[in-house]
Design a binder for these strands. Structure first.
Lengths: 124, 124, 124, 124
DNA sequence: GTGGTCTAGACCACC
DNA sequence: GTGGTCTAGACCACG
C-alpha cells in the first residue's frame, strides 16, 4: 500500500504524506477506516517512527485524518478536506495551463490530453 | 525585473532561475540580449554573486543563455531550449490534469479554463 | 582511490568528477555502493566541501549517482548513464579519428592500436 | 577563412590558434605563405589585436609559423611541427580508444567509423 | 552525520 | 570589467 522511492528527492515523510492523501482522495481508504499504527508502518518500511509520526501530523492538520488518543488514527469524512483540495488543484491547473499556452503548446493538444483521461474516467 | 520572495521556501538561485526562464520563454528578454552581469545583479538583489552564478549556470545548462568568460551572458535563440521546455510543461500538464480529475473536478470545468485562455490567445 | 593533480589546469571539481565517472563506468564502484560523504572526502583531499559537493552534483546530473539528503550519495544502476556515456565517447572518438587522419596518421596505424586493445579485451 | 564561435567556451585566442593550426596541418595554408597581419585580422574579426597577437605567439612557439620583424608572419615548413603533432594526436587516439572499449563500444563500431573516413580520404 | 544552500571574500584568465 | 573557480565557515532540514 505504501512504498518509498529512495531516489525521490522529496523527504520521506512527504512521500508518505502524499501517498496517503492520494489513497484517501481516491477513496481507496474509506471514511472512518483505521490507519496503520505509527509503529507498525515504521517497522514495515524500515524507517524511523518519527518520520511516520510527522506524516500523520500533517495529514491531520490538512483534515484527511483524525487521531483518537489510545485508539489510533482514522480517515476523516471526505467533505472535510475535498473542497480545499479541489481549490488547490484548480489553482495549479490554471497556472500550468497558462504556462503551456505560453510555451506554444496548442489548445488542441491540451484537449487531447483531457479527452484521453475523460475516456478513462468514463470506463472506470 | 527580478525580485526575490524570502517567504518562498525554494532556494534563491531557483527563484532567479525560474524568473529568467519565464522572461526568456515569454520573449520579454529578446534573443542575443545581454543578461545583467553576475556581480551587478547580485548587488541589486543584495545577495551573494555565487548565488546568481549558480542560477546562470543552470540557465546555461538548460540552453536558455550562453555565457562568455570575460564578456557576459547572453540570451540564446529560442529554438535551442523551446523543445525541452515544452516537454517539461507537457508532462506537468498531464500530471495536474490527472490529479484534477481524481479529486472530482469535471472535464467541463477544465474545458472552461482552457477556453478562457484560448480566447485571450486569439485576441493577443 | 581519488587523488588530485595540482599541475592539471582543469578545475578540481572536474578532476574529481572524471575520476569517479571512470571508477563507476569500469565497475570499480558497484551499483548502490555508498559514495564517500561530501565532508569526509573533502577532509581527505584537504579541499573545501563545496568543491566535492559540486562534483557530486554533476555526477548526479549525469546519472552516475543519486544523492539522498541526510543519508548519503549512492552509485546508480549502470543502465541509467551508460547510454549517455557511450554517446559522449563515441563523439570524441569520431573527432579524434578525423584529426588523426588529417595529420597524416595512417589507417593501418589506427587499426593496430585498435587490435592491440581488442586482444586485451578478449583475454580479460 | 577564420571565424569565431561566441558560444564556444574556449577563449577566442585558442579558437584562432586551433583554426590556423588546422589550416596549416591540412595544407590549406602552404609553406612560406604569408599570414594575415595581426592588425588586419583583428579588424576583420572585430576583436582586440592583443588576442590575435597571443594566438600568433603560440603558433610560433609550436613551430607552425615564424615571424620576421617588420615583414610579417609566415607558415613554417611542415617537417618542423608535423612530427610533434602526430605524436600528440596519436596519444590522444590511444586514450580515447581505450575509453571507448571500456564503456562497451564494440571494435566493429570503431572500425566502421574508421572506414567511413578512410573512404573519404581515398576519394579526396 | 548527511546533503543542500548561502555568504563573504578571494584569485584567475580573458578581453 | 566579465565569468569561473575555490575557500572558510555557517545554517537548515532530514533521519
Amino acid at each position: 500500500m505504501i512504498y518509498l522511492d529512495y531516489k525521490d528527492k522529496r523527504p520521506i515523510y512527504e512521500q508518505v504524506l502524499d501517498r496517503f492523501s492520494d489513497l484517501i482522495v481516491k477513496g481507496v481508504l474509506a471514511e472512518s477506516e483505521k490507519m496503520p499504527s505509527v509503529r507498525s508502518l515504521a517497522m514495515e518500511l524500515s524507517i524511523n517512527p518519527n518520520t511516520i509520526q510527522r506524516a500523520y501530523q500533517e495529514l491531520e492538520r490538512s483534515g484527511y485524518i483524525h487521531s483518537i488518543s489510545g485508539k489510533g488514527s482514522f480517515v476523516s469524512p471526505k467533505s472535510e478536506f475535498i473542497a480545499s483540495k479541489q481549490a488547490e488543484v484548480s489553482a495549479k491547473l490554471d497556472a500550468v495551463m497558462k504556462e503551456a499556452l505560453d510555451v506554444g503548446i496548442s489548445t488542441e493538444y491540451i484537449h487531447n490530453i483531457l479527452n484521453k483521461y475523460h475516456e478513462e474516467v468514463k470506463n472506470d
